[in-house]
Amino acid sequence: MSIIAKLLWVLLGLFIILNWGLLMGALIRKIVARVGKRVGIRWYQPWLSLPMLYSTRSSISHGVMYYLGPVFRLSGGVGIFLFMPLIVGSPYFDNFSFAGDVVVILYFQFFGMLGMALGAGEGGHPYSTIGISRGLAQFTTVEVPLTLAVISLAIQYDTLSIKEIAAAQQGGITNWTLFTNPLATAAALLSMLGIFRHAPFNLVQAPNEIPIGPPTEYHGTYLGVLRTNGAILHVIEAVLFMNLFFGGAGNWIELIIKTFFIYFFTVFIGVVFPRFRIEQSVVWFLKVPLVLGILAILFMAI
């Protein structure tokens, strides 16, 4: 496949993912609204908000790093997308997954986080920093069970390649990691709660307390970029979990259904539970999820 063709396929994938991300966000919000007996937003609301943000007429800048913060953030999201194979066995939608395995993706998450943190930091708003310090602090322990789960998977499948892990789960629902390695799946799903940062782990943005944390100073186009990233990132993180634990996707429909339910899981938990304080959430991830992760490894290694 020529590089041009490759790029076109990648852009197509990105387009689908972005739009599905926007729609999924709207659907989820709608479901949450219905839980609260509200009608909720219109399903096409995200498509309205983005042009609204991008078309803000005036904007301010606190400095170069502030300006680049959203660029880093979106690069982080798109980067994960680029390294992620989307459809099992499809040469068109495996993106640039030949450049690196799951480790690249796990670590590339930090690219956007760090860039965003620095951008918000240059904004000079103390609330941004409070949000970031909480976010980073929480993320340290969120990653631990996930790491354990990935190691358990690597032992199980003897590979770190997402493509191969997803391919190994083909051929029936019982081949999914969910059933072949339920402990790792459980650990990863719990850690996923922290990655998506819904309640009870949403102290980072804590809307009622520190306005909205890191993006306090971001507006207009910057915020549009951040929202674009949010749409992509939510889907692509779900795709990661789908590939690792839920058998990957053989086609786009499967991908859409699976990512929806994976994402919905975190939202569901978030609707049910109130918010943790930061020291509570930090410790929480070192309890049950950690134990599950350790058991997952023991289970596989022995």
Binding site: G79, L82, F83, F98, A99, G100, V104, A154, T159
Partner: peptide, 14 residues
Amino acid sequence: DIGYWNGSWVMYII
């Protein structure tokens, strides 16, 4: 034995 990584490509892509 289990993984792969291409530093140059990652650099270019990013």
